[in-house]
Computed example of a mutant assay.
Amino acid sequence: MNSIADNISAVQQRLQHALRGAGRNSDSVQLLAVSKTQPVAAIRAAERAGLKAFGENYLQEAEQKIAQLQSPGAPLQWHFIGPLQANKTRRAAELFDWVHSVDRLKIAQRLAAQRPAALAPLNICLQVNIDDEPSKAGLRPAELAEVAAAVATLPGIRLRGLMAIPKPRAAIEQQRAPFAALRVLRDSLNKQLTALQQQPMDTLSMGMSGDLEAAIAEGATIVRVGSDIFGARAPLR
């Protein structure tokens, strides 16, 4: 049974192979370890293996982990990647460095208003329902231009990019299609933001354990990997 360090090494080798295949720089993708439901000991093991960025889905669970893992000398970077209800935005604004799952303007407005002034702006991504699935959260592509223009003007947050979780596909060429669509959306929105004299987006949060090669081929800058690092998820307690 492989250790977490062995798993991280294997994932990093996959990343580098995919980056070389795409003709991209070796440091152009951040590996985000999805640590939801994983114990503190597992996160510490991943940190010892060199990872510094961790993704959480559940605020109460994340709050406990962040408190236990605080280290002023070598701070970790915390990303919220799960559904975010309006009544829980305050703690997200206080605890996290990134929120990837902003799926409506109201959430962005609340995060902006509730981000403590002493902290750096909160990095956010707009979640896109790239496959137009009725059961899945996210903005539809037709909504993005209006929402992005409004979000880009809010204080206390910085609009960094787009995030998507496409439905599973088996073949890599099929996997690439929704990622390519997300990249095209990001690039189109950047033209709009530049025209409005707003900072363009630099982030595509896309790709997980089963499709990270396809995501990297289409320009992912953050890939979110859980099971291939930590193994099967531990049950919530």
Rank of each mutant, 00 (worst) to 15 (best):
P83V: 14
S28H: 05
S135H: 06
S209I: 13
R44E: 06
A195G: 09
L182I: 15
P178G: 13
R14Q: 12
V184I: 15
A171Q: 13
H79T: 11
P155H: 11
Q13A: 15
L76Q: 07
G219I: 13
V102S: 03
N123D: 08
V29G: 06
I124R: 09
I216R: 08
P168H: 06
G231N: 01
A10K: 14
N129K: 07
S28A: 10
N57V: 13
K106R: 14
K191G: 13
L139T: 14
G231L: 03
P235E: 02
P141I: 14
L154W: 02
R169P: 05
A181K: 12
L189S: 12
A181L: 04
A145T: 15
R183A: 12
L144A: 09
H100M: 04
I4P: 02
I8C: 06
Q13C: 12
R14S: 10
N2C: 08
V11H: 05
K65F: 00
A112M: 03
Q77Y: 00
M201Q: 12
L196G: 11
P75F: 01
G231I: 11
V147F: 00
R160T: 15
D132Y: 01
S101C: 08
E47H: 12
L95E: 04
A180Y: 02
L119A: 12
A93I: 08
L95Y: 03
K191V: 14
T89Q: 02
L95T: 14
D27E: 10
Q197C: 08
S135N: 09
N129R: 10
Q198E: 07
L144C: 10
P178L: 08
L15K: 13
R20G: 06
A22R: 11
P178E: 08
M1A: 10
G156M: 07
M163Q: 10
Q77E: 03
M208E: 07
K65S: 06
L162K: 10
M208A: 12
A149L: 12
A117P: 01
A152Q: 05
R183V: 14
A118C: 05
S9C: 07
D6P: 05
L189Y: 06
L119Y: 01
S188V: 13
I157N: 06
N57W: 00
I216F: 01
E173F: 06
A108E: 05
G73N: 10
A214D: 04
R115A: 02
K106I: 10
R158G: 06
V223I: 15
I229G: 03
G226Q: 08
P155A: 06
A142K: 11
L159M: 10
I229E: 02
L31A: 08
A18T: 14
L126S: 09
E213K: 12
V147Q: 02
R44N: 04
S135G: 06
C125G: 09
R110D: 03
